[in-house]
């Protein structure tokens, strides 16, 4: 059950001088719903496009179910279900024909039965013969989801699956994702904090191409409730005894161990706990390499996300993420 389905190391993608994502490291286990939380343009779509084999990274590696996204691209694509943010569908096809076509492309055995099954899973079997062009946004989203789960992929990647939906549709799609998440590993991106909290087992907060926090939704909540963040780096991996010791300290709200000997500590506001932390590190037999107060970027992002949420509900957010699509809107002409 603890098989690693997504493994990303040092993933970087640059578009000319612009760095879209910068040395991302993360992983996801089987049966996990991993959330990608961040404002628009943070690099969520870029990461997803790399994981689905749509485009190669500039540097770094990513593996899906053990397969390299560039070297074993076809194997990866066979194992990944993907719902792009724009939900691309063929408007001139009927729902069922579309699913059968996509199933054939992915060599799904008994494709017709499977297409009907997927359609049932998203609750659209009564619209099987409708033309996709005539469907509402919520229904298109569901057809997109059906398409993504069609070949029973081990990993499901959903880019902003609830964007642009009305509140009832949002609820429907979210429960659908929860249902699907029981069988598949799901990576979903969102810029709505509440959604990530509701759906995900673990959340990555990403901003400007970097992961700035990675935790369970509950812990994130704690970390975001103000307080002072202190980053400690010790030599080697931090022992459990150290974490226990730190948690036991007065005025410490949360202790999380990160990669490369980093430990993130959230202390109550206005209390000087650094001497105690330093002592605890040394006494537990670690060498202290670095200790500093972290910038409050998490809170800034948090505010942005809160802002994004209300904005999204008002405008049913349509802003596209990088890379910029070729402009479709014609410049306004003057008479």
């Amino acid at each position: 059950m603890t098989q690693t389905m997504i493994a990303v190391q040092g993933l970087t993608k640059t578009y000319g001088p612009r760095v879209a994502i910068d040395h991302l490291n993360f992983g996801a286990k089987k049966g996990e719903i991993l959330g990608f939380l961040g404002p628009n343009g943070a690099g969520k779509t870029t990461t997803m496009r790399i994981l689905t084999g749509y485009m190669p990274p500039t540097t770094g590696t990513a593996r899906i179910a053990g397969f390299h996204v560039v070297d074993d691209s076809l194997e990866v694509r066979q194992r990944v279900g993907y719902l792009p943010e724009t939900v691309p569908l063929y408007n001139d096809m009927s729902v069922i024909d579309y699913l059968i076509y996509m199933g054939q492309l992915r060599r799904v055995p008994k494709v017709e039965d499977r297409a009907w099954e997927a359609l049932e899973q998203v609750g659209m079997e009564d619209r099987a013969d409708s033309f996709i062009g005539a469907l509402s946004k919520g229904m298109r989203q569901r057809v997109g989801l059906a398409q993504a789960i069609l070949h029973r992929p081990e990993v499901l990647i959903l880019d902003e699956p609830t964007i642009g939906l009305d509140p009832t549709q949002v609820v429907e799609v979210r429960s659908l994702i929860q249902e699907i998440g029981k069988e598949h590993t799901v990576l979903l991106s969102t810029h709505i904090l509440a959604e990530a909290q509701q759906l995900c087992d673990r959340v990555l907060i990403i901003n400007k191409g970097r992961i700035i926090a990675e935790d369970t939704p509950e812990n994130l909540q704690l970390r975001l409730q103000g307080g002072t963040r202190i980053l400690v780096t010790v030599q080697g991996a931090p022992q459990e005894s150290l974490l226990k010791r730190l948690r036991a300290l007065d005025g410490i709200r949360l202790v999380t161990a990160g990669a490369d000997g980093r430990v993130e500590i959230v202390a109550e506001e206005g209390r000087e706990v650094r001497p105690q932390i330093a002592r605890a590190v040394l006494e537990s037999g670690h060498s202290l390499l670095e200790m500093r107060r972290a910038a409050m970027s998490l809170e800034e992002i948090f505010l942005q996300l809160i802002g994004g949420e209300t904005e999204a509900e008002a405008a049913a957010g349509t802003a596209a993420e990088a890379p910029p699509e070729p402009a479709e809107d014609t410049p306004t002409e003057e008479a």
């Binding site: 749509y54 993907y82 792009p84």
Partner: peptide, 15 residues
């Protein structure tokens, strides 16, 4: 490419 459906084709196991 205009409709974005190319993204589905290029992420399907099709060379």
């Amino acid at each position: 490419q205009r409709m974005g459906t190319i993204e589905l084709l290029l992420t399907s196991p099709v060379r």
